[in-house]
């Protein structure tokens, strides 16, 4: 048994070394689904910036997928120099395994979230069902598209936004919020595993009257899939979605890429980086860039996870963990 195992390892060692040799002059950014277009542009800009500054030749590789799945890849050993994920909880999960320092969220400004987004509605052109706010989503004749919060980071923001809205209604409390969210999920005919899958089900398959979505995804879908087919509706209240970024300490220290990895994330906060983020419909942090794009982003009363839910760790355990509120919504009789 041990001999077999050592045989296997030696064989694979020989095999593995070959694939690794060329990997020193690049950076791997492990990110979530909706940021593909953003980071394609941003990587190009940063590569130029870095080469002008240091003269170093290097390239940036990208990996995209569901936020939780990507976090798991990092935990399982993918050589990510930086992670740019959908929510702080996923980076916390990596940090718990000791790959990222515990204080990661304070190492960069704005909770390590260089840009933000929020949750809005995408409806059919002309808004035939007259959907204006969260209340309309629980009406019996409305079909709502949203992904599964168990597998999609974006879907968790959707869920928390709905919960926060219900809580802030007159007389709102935990029970009424739970009932509201349960009613909303009763209107969901398909639970896709990711935000992109949900968008495709809504737009291409014609399922549902309203898609609950990231603001940036809603704009992208509108532009890519049909300005003539879709409209965006901004609810009265929503959540500040803060996609977080962090340097993966254990990887950059092993590979000696800390300087460039840190510069990469810092550059997201620069006017150039903020401009690119805004161009891709992420809400920028920098006031002067914000001002340039003011007409692009509708004014919505926004609340944060910390204000309403006491932080991601708590929200995760209460709502999305095994046996949490989300499970209980589906565990009851249908």
């Amino acid at each position: 048994m041990t001999r077999l195992a050592s045989f296997l390892i030696i064989g694979l060692l020989i095999f593995g070394c070959g694939t690794l040799s060329a990997a020193e002059t690049n950076l791997l950014n492990v990110s979530y689904d909706p940021t593909r277009e953003l980071y394609q542009d941003f990587n190009e800009a940063f590569t130029k910036h870095w080469q002008a500054k240091t003269g170093q030749e290097f390239s940036i590789r990208q990996s995209h997928g569901g936020s939780g799945k990507q976090a798991r890849s990092v935990i399982d050993g993918i050589e990510a120099d930086v992670v740019t994920l959908a929510l702080a909880y996923d980076i916390d999960a990596i940090s718990q395994r000791g790959l990222i320092a515990k204080d990661w969220q304070t190492r960069l400004p704005d909770n390590s979230a260089p840009y933000t987004s929020t949750i809005v509605f995408l409806v059919r052109k002309g808004n035939p069902k007259g959907i204006k706010d969260w209340d309309d989503l629980i009406k019996p004749d409305i079909k709502v598209e949203t992904p599964n919060p168990k597998t999609s980071g974006g879907a968790r923001w959707n869920y928390l936004a709905a919960w926060g809205y219900a809580l802030r209604q007159p007389g709102g409390n935990e029970t009424s919020a739970r009932d509201f969210v349960a009613a909303l999920y009763r209107n969901v005919p398909v639970l896709d595993s990711g935000a992109r899958g949900s968008t495709i089900t809504f737009v291409q398959r014609g399922i549902g009257d309203v898609l609950v979505s990231w603001e940036n995804e809603a704009f992208l879908a509108l532009n890519e899939l049909g300005p003539d087919k879709l409209d965006i509706v901004a609810p009265s209240v929503s959540i500040v979605a803060e996609p977080s970024v962090a340097v993966v300490d254990s990887v950059v220290d092993r590979r000696g890429t800390r300087a460039v990895a840190e510069a990469y994330l810092q550059y997201l906060y620069s006017p150039e980086g903020q401009e690119i983020a805004a161009k891709h419909y992420y809400r920028p942090r920098l006031p002067e860039v914000k001002a340039n794009y003011a007409d692009r982003f509708p004014a919505i009363a926004l609340f944060t996870v910390d204000e309403v839910f006491g932080g991601w760790a708590k929200a995760q355990i209460t709502h999305f963990a095994e046996g949490g509120v989300f499970d209980s919504i589906y565990a009851g009789p249908q």
Partner: peptide, 25 residues
């Protein structure tokens, strides 16, 4: 997964549940 609908208790298959557990680490 593309065609199933993936609603818990109705159209959620066991392999999807494995994936869901993995996403929860």
């Amino acid at each position: 997964i593309f065609i199933a609908g993936n609603l818990p208790m109705v159209s959620e298959i066991a392999p999807l549940l494995i994936v869901i557990k993995l996403e929860e680490f």
